[in-house]
Write a protein that binds this DNA or RNA. Structure first.
Length: 277
DNA sequence: AGTGCGACCTGATCGC
DNA sequence: TGCGATCAGGTCGCAC
């Protein structure tokens, strides 16, 4: 679930709340989530201070004041929670990072029902190599011109292209569905079949749905919670995602569910006409 | 090379 | 009611 708007919401709040905090201790009850190992991570990071929280695509980057970064991926069910020690329990807590700043003690907890997510300690110098595997970032380096080039170079279904992190950063299943609806494009249309007008509409639709996601602090259709343990609200504003058999908000037709790239895909058969596979 | 698909996990929900 | 099957979706590794 966590896509660009969800990860960005978490990043923003963590950056505001936990920058300048020092790592006092770390615990972990699910070995593979904390990499390379609890022992190694403690050895290199105990006593370091968090400089800032950054983001690339759906990846959260915690910059420490020495030569280290944490890379955190929430995958489907991961949560990062700011808590007071001894306060509420969070189900599925896997890693706890104990933090302190000017006598204030906080915990950053990583909770993940399905254990797909991870916290990985890397050397700062490894970062640019890792980030080079991700495409341009919407609102930053993805321009209409670059977007056009990306679509022209692939015959794959447009929805798969939108969700391919190598080509474009940050778009997942929810926002891909809603952006294609907003642009009135069928999700299985070949990317390189779209004309310039459609490309422009889609480019603008992507920015629009991501902006809505950010405005509503993410979509909590399933397990997503923000850094304070609160739900986002974008699920109240879904256009077609998850609305199988409901009526199209635009024309009233019945929304269809198909599978594209192994993912549930929702569209209006009237507004988003199939053009070419 | 480009593409597609199963595996990784768990819990909620569905169907019989 | 109870139990097994199915579904959810981000990314990696492998197969064609």
């Amino acid at each position: 679930m966590p896509e660009l708007p969800e990860v960005e919401t978490v990043r923003y709040d963590l950056n505001k709340s936990l920058s300048g905090f020092q790592i006092k201790d770390i615990s972990c009850n699910t070995t593979k989530i904390l990499q390379p190992s609890l022992k190694e991570v403690i050895k290199h990071t105990k006593g370091l201070t968090i400089s800032s929280f950054n983001r690339k695509a759906k990846l959260l980057i915690v910059e420490l004041n020495k030569d280290w970064n944490f890379l955190i991926h929430l995958k489907m069910s991961g949560r990062l929670l700011i808590r007071d020690p001894g306060g509420v329990e969070d189900r599925w807590t896997r890693v706890i990072i104990a933090l302190e700043r000017k006598g204030i003690i906080k915990e950053l907890r990583f909770a993940d029902q399905r254990k797909f997510g991870y916290i990985k300690l890397i050397k700062k110098e490894e970062l640019s190599d890792i980030l080079s595997n991700y495409g341009p970032e919407p609102f930053a380096d993805l321009s209409l011109q670059i977007f056009t080039k990306i679509l022209k170079s692939s015959r794959r279904a447009i929805k798969k292209v939108l969700m391919d992190q190598v080509l474009i950063s940050g778009i997942g299943n929810i926002y891909a569905n809603d952006a294609l609806f907003l642009a009135k494009i069928h999700p299985e249309t070949s990317a390189n079949y779209l004309n310039q007008n459609q490309i422009k509409n889609l480019f603008e639709a992507i920015e629009e749905v991501l902006k809505r996601g950010l405005k509503y602090r993410g979509a909590s259709d399933n397990s997503y919670l923000d850094a304070f343990g609160k739900k986002g609200q974008y699920q109240e504003h879904f256009l077609v995602y998850g609305k199988n058999k409901e009526n199209c908000p635009n024309c009233g037709s019945v929304i269809q569910k198909i599978v594209v790239g192994g993912r549930g895909t929702f569209y209006c058969p009237k507004c988003q006409l199939q053009e070419r596979k």
